[in-house]
Design a protein around this nucleic acid. Structure first.
Length: 448
DNA sequence: TCTGGGGTCCTAGGACCC
DNA sequence: TCTGGGGTCCTAGGACCC
């Protein structure tokens, strides 16, 4: 780290173990398992001829590239690259291209998580392709060997290759996981605590590659001479808290081996539910816009009911493309509170349509729209309305249950609201989606 | 022609209350 | 002339994650 006036090193000696280590029964130890190139691996599961070949998966609406196999990465295909800009390159190297197929990825993710849960007393499913495992008390275990067993078993039972990192904190485990994939010879398993010269290793990691340090902060830190994970670890947390914020200060502590971010086994209730999409083609007609917003509202209400939640607040937003230089950018949203919390699609649709009317301005070519539900409350401890004595709520529940049951048993969209319209160019493009191999009987793979 | 979607946490500042 | 202090709630915006 170069000398500078702003960032001062802490004079305190770095703790080799958490300072309160004597008070806890055993040192904390976290593992993070991460599925390698998850979406691409899922596609390969049912297309084994693609093993060893470059594969990419596109975002919703076939907009940009969001997952790449190692072979695709090696060709210089960047994450987030616009699909239309990379078509030539993809074609030239005969890259297999898929639209995203979340039904498939979600199902395979569940299988992976089920396997992982058998290897540790506690598991936190952190994202569709990652899970933290609790290995507190595993001090005497050969984690390197155990890690290899976890990877081998998961791959064998689910077909998805994974890698694992161990560390005294979540941040160090993430870092170990990253190193396990980047360092030849580690082969997807690395225990940071077993490292003989951690300072040297931390010096090889760019500050922006640390979990919790995004682009903005990486830029700011680098301007002040903090370039590597080692540099950041040497910073005084109090100074970081003052000059950046408490979140980054925690990251500094975590890099020092002081665990600040706990394992969260049970998922907290959601605070908001969103449904928002880009359109397959620009929308210039109010009727199409109303169809799309009604459709998004229907999906959001389904999500709400699936989690037994009710919403108090609804907002609707619309916008034109920020990339369109020829037309004026327009973006607007409108928020409203419901009279009483609800998850009834009909009521939410009615309000959403009203809100849409207030922000829709004719003459624009709209690129996206969406709805957001917030101030969510659990259906179980709903405050009863003293003045509403009719049986509306029960009837609404019954109707929504019927709707959801039919759609879940007979396929999404079996029953839909007239307001959603039929077809419509605004529905997203998914021209290259693979079959829903594991969640639809009609899409089952056949062997001839 | 064509640029994803869905979340979280934290902070600052204003309104309002006693 | 003089114009408190402490607290909560809400919102917008900025940062991050996958």
């Amino acid at each position: 780290m170069s000398a500078n006036q702003h960032i001062t090193r802490s004079d305190r000696p770095l703790p080799s173990t958490p300072s309160n280590a004597s008070e806890v029964a055993a040192d904390k130890r976290f593992g993070i398992v991460d599925c390698n190139n998850f979406y691409a691996s899922c596609e390969r599961m049912f297309a084994p001829h693609l093993i060893g070949k470059p594969v990419v998966v596109l975002s919703n609406n076939d907009g940009c590239i969001i997952a790449r196999s190692n072979e695709a990465k090696a060709l210089g295909i960047g994450m987030g690259m616009a699909y239309f800009k990379s078509k030539q390159l993809l074609k030239k190297h005969d890259v297999a291209v898929f639209s995203s197929n979340y039904a498939l990825y979600g199902d395979l993710s569940n299988r992976v998580m089920t396997v992982l849960a058998t290897f540790a007393p506690r598991i936190e499913v952190y994202s569709i392709d990652e899970a933290f495992l609790d290995f507190q008390g595993f001090d005497r275990w050969d984690l390197d060997r155990y890690g290899r067993e976890i990877c081998d078993t998961t791959q064998q039972w689910t077909g998805i290759p994974v890698s694992i990192g161990f560390g005294a904190t979540k941040t160090l485990a993430k870092l170990a996981n990253r190193l396990s994939k980047k360092t030849p010879g580690m082969d997807g398993v690395f225990d940071f605590s077993s490292c003989e010269n951690p300072d040297a290793l931390l010096s090889t990691v760019a500050v922006g590659d640390i979990w919790g340090v995004g682009r903005r902060w990486a830029d700011r830190l680098q301007k002040e001479g903090v370039n590597t994970a080692f540099d950041l670890q040497q910073c005084d947390p109090a100074m970081i808290k003052q000059r950046f914020n408490v979140v980054l200060a925690r990251t500094v502590q975590e890099l020092r081996g002081v665990s600040c971010i706990e394992l969260e086994e049970v998922q907290a209730d959601r605070q908001q539910v969103l449904c928002s999409r880009s359109f397959g083609v620009r929308v210039t007609d109010f009727k199409d816009m109303r169809h799309s917003v009604t459709h998004f509202m229907t999906r959001a209400a389904e999500k709400l009911r699936k989690q037994n939640l009710l919403a108090n607040v609804l907002s609707v937003h619309v916008s034109t493309s920020p990339f369109d230089d020829n037309n004026e950018y327009y973006s607007n949203s409108c928020t409203s509170r419901l009279v009483a919390p609800t998850n009834d699609s009909r009521e939410l649709i009615r309000l959403a349509q009203r809100l849409l009317k207030s922000i829709y301005v004719a003459g624009h070519s709209y690129q996206r729209a969406g709805v957001m539900l917030s101030d969510l409350v659990s259906q179980r401890n709903l405050q009863q309305d003293l003045f509403n004595q009719d049986d509306g709520v029960e009837r609404s529940d019954a109707l929504m249950t019927v709707l959801d049951t039919i759609n879940s048993q007979m396929g999404n969209g079996t029953l839909s609201f007239a307001g959603e319209g039929f077809g419509g160019g605004w529905r997203m493009k998914q021209l290259l989606r693979s079959p829903r191999y594991t969640t639809r009987v009609s899409d089952l793979k056949t062997v001839s």
